[in-house]
Structure formats: C-alpha cells, structure tokens
Write a protein that binds this DNA or RNA. Structure first.
Lengths: 161, 161
DNA sequence: GTAAATGCAAAAGCTTTGCCCCACG
DNA sequence: CGTGGGGCAAAGCTTTTGCATTTAC
C-alpha cells in the first residue's frame, strides 16, 4: 500500500545506524595499516565513522559506552593518539580547552571551521583559494607546509549592510 | 649615615632594561582603559611590553619573579584574562597544550604564525590577501568575523624545486 | 573607607601513565 | 602462548577559584 518500494526506497531498506555497520571506513583503514583489531578499537572506529560532528573525548566515550559499556576513557585517549599517528583522525582545537576529533578523509583533506561564538555551532568549509594562498605564504617564508589550522570565529549576520 | 639618600637615588643612570622602563606601552593601555594600576599589573605590563616572543604563563611568571618575587602564578593568569578581555594581549595556541600570550598591537593586528615543526621556531607574518579572503569566506557563510586563528606548520625548505 | 586585587593553597578540568590482567593473532 | 592492548585508578599539567588580607583610589 501507499505506493511502490521505488517511491521511497531509502526508507524500506533497513535503517541500520552507521555505527552498527559491519564494516566501517575507519575499520578498513585500521586493517590497511595492520593494526591489531580489538573490540574497543572496532567500536571506536565505528562510532567515529558515524560521527558527523566534532566530538571531544567525553562525547566519544559516551557514544562508545552505549555500544560497549566496559570500554574505558583511557582507551579512548590511547586510541585517538594511535589513530592520529596513523592519519586516521585529526585532532582539532576550537579554543575551549578540549581536543576534538574527526575522521580524516584524505591526506589533503584540509577543510576548516567557522565557529559561531554565540551558539558554539561549527560549520566546515573548504576554499581552494585559501589552500593556494597558504602554500604560497609558506613558500615565501621558506617553508614546506606540513599542516595548518584555520579557525574563524564569528556571529551570524542578522542583516546585510 | 653612610651618605645621603640623594647621593644614590636610583643608582645613578642605570641602563635600564625595557621591562624597567618607567612607562611601558601596555601600562599606557591599562591607564587608558581605567584599570586599577597595582604593582603586579605594572610589572606584568612591562614584562609583556618587553617580550619579543610568545611566552606561556610559566615563562611570564619566571620573568615577573625576577622583578618582584612575591607575585603569584594566580595573578599571572588573572591578569592575562583581564588583558585579553581588554584587547591588550591575545592568547595563542601553538598546539602544545599551553596558552601563549603576546601584546596586541592594534584592534586589527591579525598577524599569524608559521611554526617550524622541527625546531619549534615561530615566525610571524601578515598578509592582506589572507585577511580579505577570510572576511569574504565568513561573509559567504553568513557570519560577521569576530576573531580568527591561523597557524601554519612546516619545515624549512632545503632546496627550491 | 571601600571595593577590587592578590597570595596561597586547594580544586578543577583534561589527558597521560603504571600496573596487572586479558585477548588477539 | 607471547606480546600488545585494555581497565582501573592514580598522577600530571595547565588553569581556575575560595578565602582572608592587602592595596589603590
């Protein structure tokens, strides 16, 4: 009833949550780097793969605990450090004293963040002009760019000038 | 006895270091904003005015103690917070878990930092193109820019391509 | 004289680590 | 089965705070 499956295909396929997917992008990466795949790492990898925001250690801990309550905070930190070294996640600092983590899409995934100082909301953006300019600035200073962080802090514009 | 006080008033003409200057740029600023000028604030202001690097709280504490050993770490932090709110210094984060402080030259002094990941050396730079681009990006995202941080991490280029 | 600033020490985050047990490969 | 990984709790660091005392204006 109510039309054929093709009418709303997405809803018909089982709505599994990403975190429960048998195989997550980050699990794949772990395998590729030959990391020993333990239960905590699997869970953390899935939670990270499913994350669409910029969770801090505690947020990760909370999400991970929902899947497996025996996993400890120490493991969150140890795993984040490991994943960082493996270029699986990148650590960010939005100026509130805690580290945030996000999956690293690729070696040259250099998006940045616009942070609403009133609400704490974080928007991601990418701008090719900015990428080029940064490389040029570094080169002019005599450096090869290894990494860079840009965070913009602002307030939503209520009226245009 | 032992000669009159006037004979060695201030040890004659001492080649005072910047930090001992009677009037420092930051002291001026404090006065302008009507801050109550206490001895610790005066000392901290002078140390900051004389700083040509990016000291963290402990480095400031050490320098301040040389002038007045009774000043406490709590006062360093409290004063940095105050100066930050007054736009007298800006707080920076070079990714090592401690805040760095530096005098703010002006309301639109938005230089940035190029950090040598091998030596920890920090170069400052300013680039108008970058300033314009950032404002434009923020506007395109619907924001008014309040603040922004950019840090470039790199290694010194040994050979040009 | 009064409100604000400071020193001291304790507390509060966030993150790391030692130690011993457990599980992956 | 041996070695790396994980849980737990304690320690480490940087920064903040409560309280009594001192200081600037």
């Amino acid at each position: 009833m109510l039309g054929q499956a093709e009418d709303r295909p997405v809803a018909v396929q089982i709505p599994v949550k990403n975190a429960d997917a048998v195989e997550s992008r980050i699990e794949d990466l772990c395998a590729k780097r030959g990391l020993r795949m333990t239960e905590p790492r699997r869970v953390i990898a899935r939670v990270l793969s499913a994350a669409e925001d910029h969770p801090d250690a505690e947020a990760l801990y909370d999400r991970v605990k929902e899947v497996d309550p025996t996993i400890s905070m120490a493991t969150i930190y140890r795993t984040m450090k490991l994943f960082e070294e493996m270029d699986i996640v990148s650590k960010r600092d939005f100026g509130d004293g805690r580290a945030r983590y996000e999956p690293q899409s690729g070696p040259d995934d250099h998006h940045h963040h616009m942070i609403d100082v009133e609400t704490g909301e974080v928007l991601e953006f990418y701008n090719q002009e900015l990428e080029d300019l940064k490389k040029r600035i570094a080169r002019d200073l005599g450096f090869d760019l290894v990494d860079h962080h840009l965070e913009l802090f602002g307030t939503r514009r209520k009226k245009q000038h």
